[in-house]
Design a protein around this nucleic acid. Sequence first.
RNA 1: GGCGGCAUAGCCAAGUGGUAAGGCAACGGCCUGCAAAGCCGUGACUCCCCGGUUCGAAUCCGGGUGCCGCCUCCA
Length: 474
Amino acid sequence: MIQVYNTLTKRKEPFVPREPGRVRMYVCGPTTYNYIHLGNARALVVFDTVRRYLEYRGFRVFFVQNFTDIDDKIIKRAAEEKMDPRELALKYIEAYFEDADQINIKRADVHPRVSDHLPEIIELISLLIDKGFAYVAEGDVYFAVRKFPEYGKLSGRQLSELRAGARVEPGENKKDPLDFALWKKAKPGEPSWSSPWGEGRPGWHIECSAMALKYLGPELDIHGGGSDLIFPHHENEIAQSEAATGRPFARYWLHNGFITVKEEKMSKSLGNIFLLREVMEAYPPSAVRLFLLSTHYRSPLAYTPEYLEGAAKALSRLRSSWLFLLEAQNQAEEFSGGAEQLARLDEWEQDFAAAMDDDFNTARALALFFDLAHEINSWAELRPLPPAPVLRRALSLWVAFNRVLGLFPERRGLPVVEQERTEVIEDLVKLLVEIRQEARQRKDWATADRIREELKNLGIILEDTPAGTRWRWA
RNA sequence: GGCGGCAUAGCCAAGUGGUAAGGCAACGGCCUGCAAAGCCGUGACUCCCCGGUUCGAAUCCGGGUGCCGCCUCCA
């Protein structure tokens, strides 16, 4: 049974979706006014992995992740760059997919954009006004927080405590400082849409409620996001959605911890952000993904370049075990036996599931993956090799672990553990290896080493093994 | 001030009350012409400190210290 930590109850609970075998899941996606940074990437990788694991466990997952493409920050940034706000948003949506694909994030079933859902948003706001939870004030619409008695249940706050922090910006017409905007009256020059309350645009929180309700219905199974969204964003989503539907909005609220840099939260306001694409220029995406899964998702995670350096090396253990398995498949003897090894592999599978069942403990799962790789690598020293059934079973486990953790992308169902080799490169390297081999035979080490050294400079590592010389990408 | 979290080897990190996973780094060895990769082996007399519960605690309880986060846009 999968146990998940639910922010709403502050406990680990058995995961029971509303409908058996199906999971409806919503994760707050990026506001598209910049390239995504490592912090965004953590949320993406964490919930992508949650989704992958649920699928591994046989759930049919319907996954929705939005783009916030209408927002104050987009408008501001567009003005700075003298671009149309819609164009700016589109540019970063495209960039989002480039980055997310690199780091092996599966596409959501739906990626709804705010700009495509104005009718749904307006309808939801109207409903809230009709039900008396919201009010119109000079072209703005606000949610009356005090009308929703359960306000604060997610973030564990009392209305009385919140009072101190709340404030009214100049130009706002709130009746109560705690109220928040559902609809903002347009200022001249800003993108706007017509509504029963005049020209304007949606507030930040209402979009997620509207889109989640549209695609997933009134009661989601999982709602996720970074823990900085707990308050006010998710608290407000609950208020809006539950006020509108009268039903619990989400059964399980999952929140990931932050990335820290030098003991401080990585955040835009502190200016200490690292863009994902910058980091991926220096380190392979699989290393970044390994880094992001190396700590339990709710714990803080410290970013250091040294760590990624190490992660990249750690991956080579996994890589070599995979390459061994692929090769060994062809050489293995088709005899039965290996019952003991098969039993051990079964145990591995169970331990892996137990780790992930426990609130998606990827650190533990990763440790098991490394254990498995280590075991497989030790077979490489064995003669004879383990029997074919054992190798097949190990291979299928390897694929399964990788598929859940998403470390290496797959092509035609098989993990791709290294950069693509084109036929031309393959042939060129083969040629140089042959020349080097001739040099080695006449003990011309200078030439042999020169070829290896120069190829290394080009990112190609030669490895001499008893079976001949192999090459791989650095 | 209110609320929440964390303190485990040089670094990162898991850990169900029963005797400390895994990764990086380091050091021996095997393999190699030398390498690389991989394999074999070596690490915490102990889990921030002090008390307590228990036959037994890194794990539970109380107190202390230190660090971080949220309460305002932020994944």
